[in-house]
Amino acid sequence: MKAFTRLNALAAPLHRNNVDTDAIIPKQFLKSIKRSGFGVNLFDAWRYLDEGFPGQDPDSRQPNPEFVLNEARYKGAQVLIAGDNFGCGSSREHAVWALDDYGFRSVIAPSFADIFHNNSFKSGLLPIVLPAEVCANLAEACENTEGYTLDIDLEAQTVTTPDGEVHSFEVDQFRKDCLLHGLDDIGLTLQKRNRIEDYEAKRQSSAPWLFNTQAES
């Protein structure tokens, strides 16, 4: 996985609560069997006026001038300041891949949906929970200040504004380590192979029905 240590980057605000994964990446793009290439369709239905479908030439699309990420000043933003319950809905990791592929490295919100929150760590996108008033203030400052950048330090667990205001955030120790060092979860887990095998053997003798494969069709 991609490591995340420190980032000083342009931020963009998204003023909506309950932004669902269907909005982040609509279903027609989930047909892809790849992990990349989702960025051009991030927030597709909000970002473009015409209907999106897989394999379109992005240059032929009609951008929606009203949508915040289409404003020139937010081009190149790597931090998204979002609303409550960001990433609710489906489990599609494509939502994280789309944000990542577009260029976002971190999303700051008052709360995240559980599965999205989990998925983010797996692709090196750092989800940061800050209190609702702080998020609202950051979003407002971001709108009022062209070129508004935030400094995110994962090691120190802080977000620092251009004025030097510091906000601390929480993150699980294990996830933090994985992200800081770009560790592969699966490789780490497989170091515990023996424990998994022991568990499995015990379970198989105490509850053998859990290991049935289907008898006939």
Partner: peptide, 30 residues
């Protein structure tokens, strides 16, 4: 790899949706 995996909890199972990286993790490590 589907959020409506919660359905299966009706059986007194602990059932939940996961993302694709986790799907791979379960495949590889159970």
């Amino acid at each position: 790899g589907d959020s409506h995996t919660s359905t299966h909890g009706a059986f007194g199972a602990l059932a939940f949706g996961i993302g694709t990286s986790e799907v791979e993790h379960v495949m590889a490590t159970q």
